[in-house]
């Protein structure tokens, strides 16, 4: 699913003399007839594009437009970048922005967990069929249920701390300390959603050429070399995809867990832009919330693009 057309293009035009794009006998592009065959693909894609534009792109534009207007007394009036400036100076927004960086640190953990477990399943570890289904189970649970369960498990006098007490490790108020609240929620999120990444990795593995692995093994490669030189380059597209979707999932899908487990607290220690947007709407400041949504969109876009660029280089065949 490469979106990089330039490399394909160069592959196709390889071998042809440079400068040779069209021959004199070619029909000039402008006068190619609009046959049914030419229109068909556009027509088939059109409904999806219409749906995307009407339900995704248009509301997005409306939202961005709305973020330039004011709240409460200034309802409907143009305030330019006023909302954005307010956000930059707001303590809760700054906390959210800092927390986004913490979230980014946890993305590789989820990818690693999913990737490693997928590798073992692929290598047909005993019980692999059982693990494959069990690992996906948390994904089907509602975040509210997961939050409620882990509220009980992670309570200061709850089962986790009791278990740690048995092995003489001091328990901690996981959800009540500013330093541990967000990481704890992120770990629960990883538990809840790594199954999806795992399944995507397994799909990626299915496209791996088993002969390459065999060849490497025959050439004497150990497990680490197999992983680094055969599996990772072969899975590079999958890894990129999982990284990006995991990041998006963490930045935009943590709301349910935050709501049930910490409500953004203690203080603003586990605020994320998504949760902050919701609080703003509840405080009757929808235009400010729109501005925060635009910030979130930009964050996700920029991070996603950087990730794709970095990962493409990192997972190339060395």
């Amino acid at each position: 699913m490469s979106t990089d057309t330039t490399s394909t293009r160069s592959l196709v035009l390889e071998g042809q003399a440079p400068g040779r794009r069209r021959r004199a006998t070619d029909i000039p592009l402008r006068r190619k007839p609009w046959t049914a065959e030419r229109i068909a693909p556009y027509a088939m894609v059109l409904p999806v594009i219409v749906v995307l534009v009407v339900f995704r792109l248009y509301p997005l534009l409306l939202g961005i437009n709305f973020s330039f207007t004011g709240d409460k007394e200034l309802n409907g009036q143009f305030v330019g970048l006023g909302n954005y400036l307010t956000l930059l100076g707001d303590e809760r927004f700054q906390a959210s922005a800092r927390n986004v960086l913490i979230v980014l640190l946890f993305v590789p953990i989820q990818v690693l967990v999913a990737g490693l477990l997928a590798t073992f399943i692929f290598l047909k570890v005993p019980g692999h069929r059982f693990y494959r289904s069990v690992y996906f189970l948390p994904v089907v649970l509602s975040p509210i249920i997961i939050g409620a369960i882990f509220n009980i498990i992670l309570a200061a006098d709850g089962p986790l701390n009791q278990a740690l007490g048995v092995v003489r490790i001091p328990g901690v108020d996981w959800l009540g300390l500013p330093g541990t609240a967000l990481p704890t929620v992120l770990m629960v999120h990883i538990w809840a959603t790594f199954g999806m990444a795992l399944v995507i990795f397994l799909a990626g593995f299915a496209t791996l050429d088993a002969e390459l692995l065999d060849a490497a093994r025959i050439d004497g490669a150990n497990l680490r070399q197999q992983i680094v030189h055969v599996i990772i380059p072969g899975l590079s597209q999958t890894i990129q995809f999982v990284f990006v979707t995991t990041t998006i999932g963490m930045l935009t899908g943590l709301f349910g867990l935050l709501y049930t487990m910490t409500a953004g607290g203690p203080g603003a220690a586990s605020y994320l832009p998504e949760f902050y947007i919701w609080k703003l709407i509840g405080e009757a400041r929808p235009a400010l919330a729109s501005a925060a949504s635009v910030f979130l969109l930009l964050i996700v876009l920029v991070i996603g693009l950087i990730q794709i660029r970095v990962l493409r280089r990192a997972t190339k065949e060395i």
Partner: peptide, 13 residues
């Protein structure tokens, strides 16, 4: 286009 449309869009209350 977006930058030019930053007007209107009052929220119903």
């Amino acid at each position: 286009a977006l930058a030019l449309t930053g007007c209107g869009g009052a929220s119903p209350t």
